[in-house]
Amino acid sequence: MTTNLNQPDINKKQIDTINQQYTEKIREAAKRILLEKKADVVIGFKNGTEPMTTEPCLINKASDADKLIWNEHCCLNLANYVKGRKDKVAVIAKGCDSRNLVNHIIEHQIKRENLYIIGVPCNGMVDKSVNVKDSKVEAESDTMQENLDVFLTNRDMLQENCKTCIKRNPVIFDEMIAEPVKERVWTKEEKLKERFESVNKIEAMSESDRWSFFNDMLSSCTRCYACRNACPLCYCPTCFVDESRPQWVGKGVDPVDVRTYHFLRAFHLFHL
């Protein structure tokens, strides 16, 4: 077992290999699904116009399947593109996407029978603000999978939510494009310390500090509702802030109204 701090490229290479394999499998599946008419469209990812970005990609011809790609920048949640469709849809789903799909199925936003889920075991998405090459990816093993695990637990590189991920593999799927990856097992202590690190930080504050913390956080909010549009769980045709009878939350940027919007939206996401 070797540790090579100076050669992060090795890992990058291995990741590229995996991405290559996944991409091929995804294209193959998309072609097959469209040809076999298991779905009318396949929703996946294509390369973005900027480096280190991807875009959602909707294809309805098998010949377009080669547009689809997979890499560590496929961070968008495609569940958002599925709801409300009347046709049969195949969708690429990471662990997190699949959990949203479940929610959409339960809440009648998608019909399970109209949905074909192409499951992708996820190795985590890269935080774009971190330069891959500069990060300290360590190789602790010669096997690719184990290297990946190291990569994935490297707290510097991943998106915040990937760092605390508990479901890398889809929880629901019609086919998987690769063997499931190992899920990280959290000890109770890790859970409390690591997974809820940001939560704990706020909890440790005094009441007034907590109030100010969120006030500061929301002080720049202009109520553009991009958060609501991007959210895979926000699908109400009329959001509570848009209710007019009674209009109990102001529509402007009064700090209490802004606060109420974010507060209740968050509450709606984890409860009714």
């Binding site: 706020i202 909890e203 009441e207 007034s208 500090d209 907590r210 109030w211 100010s212 913390f213 969120f214 606060r259 507060f263 968050a266 509450f267 984890f270 409860h271 009714l272």
Partner: peptide
């Protein structure tokens, strides 16, 4: 039962936001 579940979450969440216990 629904009320209890809803309120426990809401109360905790409000207190997390800074509303005093």
């Amino acid at each position: 039962y629904y009320a209890r579940r809803k309120f426990m979450l809401l109360k905790n969440f409000l207190e997390y936001n800074g509303i005093e216990q």
